[in-house]
């Protein structure tokens, strides 16, 4: 022991919904009819409620309509364990438009890091899950070392403000290719 290597990744494939969001996939009644991660706010919590929408685009500019997206973020209190809030969410991209929506709370800054949301994307054609971050247009991101490390491409991680929250376009390829990270 002590010399094991991580199990190699394989694509989630086009049917990831069966395993991870079975109600969305139409498997009625599976797991009590509630897809895990569908609701992040589980109690009457204090915080700024936001809808974070997004869409993942392929190299032809077509939206991914078969992806699964998970997010992980700090709570408004700066922890990852606030009562009434899961910090974790999971959503499929819509099978027609490719848009995903997380109803969440705006994260607090943590330490020297600007408020951010970690995003993990899996789908057919993605051999190893892609991780990126969402930063906010109304925060000072220049103090954040991950943001600054991304240099001239950092703005691909900044969401735009919407009526009830924020939107992020994630480009897998092309001139606006999103910064993907791996610690």
């Amino acid at each position: 022991m002590g010399d094991l290597k991580e199990s190699a990744s394989q694509t989630a494939g086009p049917y990831v919904h069966i395993g991870c969001v079975p109600s969305f996939a139409g498997l009625s009644g599976m797991y009590g009819g509630r897809d895990l991660g569908a609701s992040m706010i589980t109690d009457d919590v204090i915080g700024h409620r936001i809808a974070v929408t997004g869409c993942v685009y392929d190299g032809d500019g077509a939206p991914l309509t078969d992806a699964m997206i998970e997010i992980w973020q700090a709570a408004p209190d700066g922890t990852f364990a606030m009562d009434g809030f899961s910090s974790w969410g999971r959503q499929p991209s819509a099978s027609d438009t490719g848009v995903f929506t997380f109803n969440t709370l705006k994260p607090a800054a943590i330490g020297n890091q600007a408020p951010h949301i970690m995003v993990w994307i899996v789908a057919r054609g993605i051999n190893l899950g892609l991780t990126t971050r969402i930063y906010f247009p109304d925060e000072d991101n220049r103090s954040d070392r991950v943001f600054t490390l991304a240099g001239g491409r950092a703005d691909t991680m900044v969401a735009t403000a919407t009526a009830d929250g924020y939107h992020i376009d994630i480009h897998l390829q092309g001139p606006n290719e999103t910064v993907f990270v791996d610690v």
């Binding site: 694509t11 392929d58 190299g59 032809d60 077509a62 991914l64 992980w72 973020q73 700090a74 990852f80 943590i110 330490g111 890091q113 951010h116 970690m118 789908a123 057919r124 054609g125 993605i126 051999n127 892609l130 991780t131 971050r133 070392r145 991950v146 490390l149 991304a150 491409r153 897998l172 390829q173 290719e177 999103t178 910064v179 993907f180 990270v181 791996d182 610690v183």
Partner: peptide, 21 residues
């Protein structure tokens, strides 16, 4: 594996020391 052609990013992943996130 054809589906990777339009879905694989061209840039290398940005590596950094892990944070609390």
């Amino acid at each position: 594996y054809r589906s990777t052609h339009l879905r694989a990013p061209a840039h290398a992943r940005l590596h950094y020391a892990p944070t609390a996130t």
